[in-house]
């Protein structure tokens, strides 16, 4: 009779029962999380970073509710960016007159940096052209780092087809770049070179805007490149 009441058995049975309950509980939680992850992946895509030392970029479809109320006309591009460990993201944007194959130009230039990251991170990059009070503004944001600038007064983007639009990757492409490259995330410009007030062509400059990302340790090279003094960096856009 006492074997039925063996404390060891009772303990083992109890542990098993608790284990079954925990299994059910954790399976349920895991299933919920898997469902959540699947939902998120539907929005941002499923991709595995093959080489963790590279900067990897993929386009994300713009969510239906990404454009908040109070915003008029708007063109929006969003990217998912994998940054390798020890990368110090530095973002630079130019709006006004831009070059077709290099950073810099004439107009508003903004550069922001957010410090070196210890571990690989994924960031959301957003490029937006928004019309406010009959003037288009250019917004560029990577993670918490953002900049904005007004486009020239006569720059109106009613139809994107009238412009040269060069996103770093299109469709379902995934781009992988070395960490020492300056990556042009986005460029939009007019087809023809800009002219001055007297109708003379301003050589190699187009009305538009560009957004670049590079690691802070490349800032000197990037600055020289954007000033046309150096050709050590090359355009990443194909």
């Amino acid at each position: 009779m006492f074997r039925k009441h063996s404390p060891l058995r009772i303990v083992l049975i109890t542990i098993s029962a608790v284990g079954i309950a925990c299994t059910l509980y954790y399976n349920e939680e895991r299933n919920q999380l898997r469902g959540t992850l699947t939902e998120l992946q539907k929005q941002v895509g499923v991709w595995k970073v093959e080489d963790e030392s590279k900067v990897v970029i993929a386009r994300i479809p713009v969510a239906k509710d990404a454009i908040p109320p109070g915003v008029g006309k708007c063109h929006l591009w969003q990217y998912r960016i994998h940054l390798p460990a020890k990368y110090a993201p530095c973002v630079s944007s130019t709006s006004g007159l831009v070059k077709a194959n290099a950073p810099g130009g004439q107009g508003s230039q903004n550069t922001g940096m957010s410090g070196q990251i210890a571990e690989p991170e994924q960031k959301l990059a957003t490029v937006a052209l928004i019309e406010t009070d009959d003037q288009w503004k250019f917004y560029f944001r990577v993670g918490g780092n953002s900049s904005s600038a007004s486009m020239p007064p006569d720059f109106s983007i009613e139809r994107l087809g009238d412009f040269v639009v060069e996103p770093v990757v299109s469709g379902n492409e995934i781009g992988a770049f070395d960490a020492d490259e300056a990556i042009c995330l986005f460029r939009i410009r007019e087809n023809e070179m800009a002219t001055d007030g007297r109708g003379n062509i301003i050589k190699d400059l187009y009305a538009g805007c560009t957004a670049y990302i590079f690691s802070e340790d490349q800032q000197d090279a990037f600055t020289e490149w954007s000033q046309g003094q150096r050709n050590s960096m090359k355009e990443t856009l194909q």
Binding site: I15, S16, A17, V18, G19, I20, C22, T23, Y26, N27, E29, R30, L33, R34, T36, L37, E39, L40, Q41, Q43, V44, I60, A63, D65, A66, R80, Q122, K123, L124
Partner: peptide
């Protein structure tokens, strides 16, 4: 009964990291 719990806990931790990574990229 406990082995699945341990496996699930490990997977949950991985899933949570993945979700934390992706969530700021979305509006969900």
């Amino acid at each position: 009964t406990w082995l699945p719990v341990l496996i699930a806990q490990r997977q949950i931790a991985e899933l949570e990291v993945d979700i934390q990574t992706l969530q700021p990229l979305t509006t969900d």
